[in-house]
């Protein structure tokens, strides 16, 4: 039998609680800092504008394309390569009195003059009113996910579990956003989808640990142990599963990141970061929080109360 993680004694995770909480707090603050100072590089779905994807037969200098587009004077244009030297993305802001078809035609025509081997692969135009709506819908979806998960965990477990899980995972979300802000990667609608999927996924991770904690509270042979010891035992017992599961999911996501092409890049990136922090936060943030909220055996194992008979 191959076993990567056969630990004879429980690892005292809870004794590192202060340290891990401090690390989390620090990364969280850094992430928020970048979110505020640098801000997210919102994709065209949110900001409105026109995005064109071009492909050249032979490789092309980005600078050359940039000059070509800038010569048209559309204001703040973005020209960047899409992974290869042949694929180029051009992003143009919304311009009054010009439709996106006009814009894209003008750009294509002027680029064709320089290099006739350019082919238009994709045009995307988003009007200004759509972006705000997507933004509010995104936030609503995020709020709904949080409320739904809190409600479910409160029913299945208890409020301390619900809140530690959601705090730990929102901390993941903020960190992913922070990374996207720091590197100024494009924050598109699919990235948002990825983030919400991560939220559901890492809560799942916390649930597995919580399940074990609840089970341990009920186990007769662990009765004498303290609460931190019980949590340590639960984390250690589920550790092997945690690493293998996340390894598998990460393998899938990495395959997407490596082979999925430009269209899936942002999505796969959000998931890659999300899964790594998901492991960390559900083990080393959610559980210390649980302890901090003062979870006890009684909060999980309800003492059987003898019903009082009505006295007539």
């Amino acid at each position: 039998m191959i076993e990567f993680f056969h630990v004879k004694r429980d690892i005292p995770f809870m004794s590192y609680g202060k340290l891990t909480t401090a690390i989390s707090l620090a990364t969280f603050v850094v992430a928020v800092f970048f979110l505020i100072t640098k801000g997210l590089n919102f994709g065209v779905e949110f900001t409105g504008g026109t995005v064109m994807e071009l492909r050249y037969q032979q490789s092309v200098e980005i600078q050359q394309v940039r000059h070509g587009v800038e010569a048209l004077k559309y204001g703040e244009v973005q020209v960047q390569s899409l992974g290869t030297t042949k694929d180029v993305m051009v992003r143009i802001p919304n311009i009054k009195d010009k439709s996106s078809a006009q814009l894209s035609n003008e750009v294509l025509n002027s680029l064709k003059k320089e290099r006739p081997d350019v082919e238009l692969r994709k045009v995307e135009f988003i009007g200004p009113s759509v972006g705000d709506e997507l933004f509010s819908h995104g936030l609503t979806a995020l709020a709904l996910v949080c409320v739904g998960i809190i409600a479910y965990l409160m029913i299945r477990f208890e409020w301390r579990f619900a809140f530690s899980a959601i705090i730990a995972n929102m901390h993941d979300v903020v960190i992913i956003l922070g990374v996207f802000a720091f590197f100024q990667w494009e924050f598109s609608l699919t990235v948002l989808a990825g983030i919400l999927a991560v939220l559901g996924y890492s809560v799942n991770e916390s649930v597995v640990v919580f399940d074990r904690i609840r089970e341990n509270f009920r186990k007769p042979n662990l009765r004498g142990k303290t609460v931190p010891e019980i949590i340590d035992n639960a984390i250690t017992a589920t550790m092997s599963r945690t690493i293998i599961t996340h390894g598998s999911t990460e393998a899938m996501v990495l395959a997407m990141l490596l082979f999925g092409g430009a269209a899936l890049h942002g999505f796969a990136m959000a998931l890659t970061i999300g899964i790594v922090f998901g492991i960390y936060s559900s083990v080393l943030v959610a559980s210390p929080l649980l302890l901090m909220f003062g979870v006890t055996r009684d909060s999980m194992v309800k003492p059987v109360t003898v019903k009082e008979e009505a006295v007539v």
Binding site: L153, V203, V207
Partner: peptide, 16 residues
């Protein structure tokens, strides 16, 4: 438990 929490996130995405 873990599938239901994931499903909650999925449904929110579907609705919004």
């Amino acid at each position: 438990d873990s599938n239901i929490t994931t499903l909650i996130a999925g449904l929110a995405l579907l609705i919004f």
